[in-house]
Design a protein around this nucleic acid. Sequence first.
RNA 1: CGGGGCGUGGCGCAGCAUGGUAGCGCACCUGCCUUGGGAGCAGGGGGUCGGCCGUUCAAAUCGGCUCGCCCCGACCA
Length: 487
Amino acid sequence: MADKQDEKKITPRSEDFAGWYNDIVLRAELADYSPVRGCIVFRPDGFAIWEALRDELDRRIKKTGARNAYFPLFIPQSFLKKEAQHVEGFAPEVAVVTHGGGKELEEPLIVRPTSETIINHMFAQWIHSHRDLPLMVNQWCNVVRWEMRTRIFLRTAEFLWQEGHTAHATREEAERETLTMLEVYRKFAEDFLAIPIVAGRKSAAERFPGAEETYTIESLMGDGRALQCGTSHFLGQNFSRAFEIRFLDENNQMVHPWQTSWGVSTRLLGAIVMAHGDDQGLRLPPAVASTQGVIVPIWRKADDRDAVLNAARAALNELENANVRVRLDDREGLTPGFKYNDWEMRGVPLRIEIGPRDVASGEAVMARRDIPGAAGKSKASLDGIAGHAQSMLAEIQKNLLAQARAAMTANTHSVASYARLQEQMAGEGGGGFADIYWCGRAECETKIRDETRATCRAIPLNQSLSPGQCVVCAEPASERALFAKAY
RNA sequence: CGGGGCGUGGCGCAGCAUGGUAGCGCACCUGCCUUGGGAGCAGGGGGUCGGCCGUUCAAAUCGGCUCGCCCCGACCA
């Protein structure tokens, strides 16, 4: 019997984080492996999360003034080579199409790993005057990067994302745009995905190939490893020079525009799983859950059945009318216990249990996914159930962020010596964030990486600290940086 | 590419040392009975053991080769 139970359970998070993560993704039917190495299938429950996330972010992006467009999947190979750092960064992981229509192509096509090159090629033809600026486009698409090692959602050979590309008349305006989008991402991650974020600058080593500055929203997962959840790049004039984008400014001078690009990907699905999941399975923030609440009817005797189901349907109706995304699990032949476990695995934020006792008392049992076990159960009157559910969902949304933030805070350590840093990063698995003074030099960063496997995740914005000494070389350091082992 | 693990019904595994023609749990189908934390009983269907070659009267089991997957590392969103 114990064996039967164990088989149904997922790998405990504390025992094997990677195994736990894979179990949840597969068992909650978010995604499945595909016949193609490194590529995954997004199953309906997983894709629904992406759709919810995409719809919300799309609204927020459009509010900043960007509009959606679509550029081709294939890019002439020569385009990649136009920007020196860019080609160096991406060439090794690019898929190349050499044949089409039964013939070898005159010039091979690459499958986009990102679209700076082809978009800027088009920008060069669309931008002639300062009146054409700013030009702000965004596209939702797939990209391909031939990664050596893949992890479901976190790093797949093909992934879905949005990439925004903008061109501006002045450096200042482009820099402002970079930070505006970083803030859009930060708020989106925290308010919608309930994932706590550190917003900061990347070190030169971690910068996007071709960018002058890269900013990141970084988070910490349950195993103490950091995950880059989104990036916003200030490209300077690197691409506008490489692709000869020029315009006449107000002074009749021919100049290159200043540019940005920014993106988030389906990696965020992995972030949701890792930031919120527990040993029972997935825990979805109500905002992204396609099913926010599930009603489980319970009856013993046949004559209870109708009364229970009637009450359940009435509740369903009221909740639907209040725009709560709810469903009734009236599957026959399954015990309530099975259904509880099933919906908990799938991450549904709120469960509403209605049995004969509840019908008699005009109540329902509300079970919150964010608080496991009996502690998360309470009663609510069936009359006005929608209001109860809505306020409870709002609390769950807030609480998931609070829980994740508490975990991140508990795993962030201010470290004053190199020995302490090594200690924190020792052993397998993550070590959380090490908040250190760093002089900013690549030598010290490399030393840390080589000796602890931690890398610079972010140099947090808005620091108001007095200068200190680099934990590695003891030279003066004007800023603190967060180092961690990363996904 | 280096290290580790693994390929046997849909899933998880046993069988392999001492070769004899495949078994268990879950899931599935039918019926009865059940439903407040992963129900029970009975009866069913489904695999030729990743692939190839070899040894043998006989291979899931022995030998060789090969393909694939997962995990850890280097690369990266």
